[in-house]
Structures are given as structure tokens and as C-alpha cells.
């Protein structure tokens, strides 16, 4: 057995390996929070059922809808991931600060709870994001940035296909 060989070779390395295994067990037990480099590689392991409704982000450049099959996997991610991450960032960051503070409290690390300097990026507002996104998008997609419109649209799943429903305009950018 590898651990036994390690034990025979160097006790310090063996202790390190055992510590690693124990941390991984805690991560297994806790589920949810991880601690790099200890992860739970779930890879869609939870029961996932078809939902009635899906939230879709649609990007129009100069009136033309950007379509998933026109771009490589990573280009497509680069188009819409920043949009949903931007609109989720404040809620997610606030939630993470809450969870982090609960952990700090458990660890008796007082004084750090209020230190949120590097955990919020509120200065990066809608205006800054739109300017950044327009330049970023046009930088890799080859489009000119005259007119960009981003909408969030609900799609209903009818058991056969996704059908468009209500939508809201998230932002419109005109150069």
C-alpha cells in the first residue's frame, strides 16, 4: 500500500499525506464549501430534472443576435459568462461574506469579519461594466461596438423545445 511505503520512507511525508486525506474527508463531509486544492468533483452528480423555465442571456450586436453555434466553446463562454457573473456578483459576494463570517466566528478569528475591502467590487458599477463589456466583446468577436443590447429572457420548456417568454433589457450600449 502506498501510504505504508511512504511511512517506511519518510514519516514527515506520510504525515502530510494523511493530513491531506483528512482534509479531503472533511470536504467530503461538509459538501458545498471547498478549500483549494481539496475539491468535490461532483460533475452533475445531483439529481437534475428538466425545469419549466430557463433564464437566458441574449446579446445583440448591431441588431444581430449572437448565436451559440457561431462561436467556439470558450468564445461562447466569454460572451455570456461575464454578463451573468456581473449581475450575480453583488448577491453572491454578500452571501459569501456571510458564510465566511460564520466560519471566522467558529474559528474565533475576531476582527476579520469587518474586513471586506477585497471582497466587494462595488466601484465597478453598471456604467463601468457596460464600457468594459463592449470593448471586451468587440476585442475578441471581431464585431464593431456601435450598438450592443443585452436582454434577459425567460424560456418555457414545453417538453419538446424551449419557447421564448417575457424578457427585460439589461442594458443598451451605443457608441
Amino acid at each position: 500500500m502506498f501510504l505504508y511505503k511512504l511511512y517506511r520512507y519518510k514519516r514527515s511525508l506520510f504525515a502530510l499525506a494523511v493530513a491531506g486525506c483528512l482534509i479531503q474527508l472533511v470536504i467530503f463531509y461538509k459538501q458545498g464549501a471547498v478549500a483549494t486544492p481539496f475539491f468535490n468533483y461532483g460533475m452533475y452528480s445531483e439529481k437534475i430534472l428538466s425545469k419549466d423555465q430557463y433564464e437566458i442571456y441574449k446579446v445583440y450586436v448591431n441588431g444581430e443576435l449572437l448565436k451559440g453555434d457561431d462561436y467556439s466553446i470558450q468564445e461562447w463562454d466569454k460572451i455570456y459568462v461575464p454578463v451573468y457573473m456581473y449581475y450575480a456578483k453583488d448577491t453572491t459576494n454578500e452571501l459569501m461574506i456571510e458564510v465566511r463570517n460564520r466560519l471566522l466566528l467558529k474559528l474565533q478569528l475576531k476582527g476579520l469579519e469587518a474586513d471586506n475591502r477585497y471582497f466587494e467590487n462595488r466601484e465597478f458599477n453598471d456604467e463601468a461594466f457596460i464600457e468594459w463589456y463592449a470593448a471586451y466583446l468587440c476585442g475578441f468577436s471581431g464585431h464593431s461596438s456601435q450598438n450592443i443590447r443585452v436582454i434577459k429572457q425567460n424560456y418555457q420548456w414545453n417538453g419538446q423545445q424551449l419557447l421564448p417568454a417575457d424578457s427585460i433589457v439589461l442594458f443598451q450600449y451605443r457608441q
Binding site: 439529481k47 437534475i48 430534472l49 428538466s50 430557463y54 437566458i56 442571456y57 451559440g68 421564448p164
Partner: peptide, 24 residues
């Protein structure tokens, strides 16, 4: 986590993973 015991798992996964592409 039970994903393997759900007969409709892959349909749910594909819809979740590719909803952007399927819609656009």
C-alpha cells in the same frame, strides 16, 4: 448524490448546460 438513479438525468443536464445555445 443520486444522479445515476434519475432516468431523466441527462435530459435535465443537457437543458441546463446548453440552454443558452438552444435558445439562441
Amino acid at each position: 448524490n443520486g444522479g445515476i438513479f434519475n432516468p431523466g438525468q441527462m435530459s435535465g443536464v443537457l437543458l441546463l448546460q446548453h440552454s443558452q445555445l438552444l435558445a439562441t
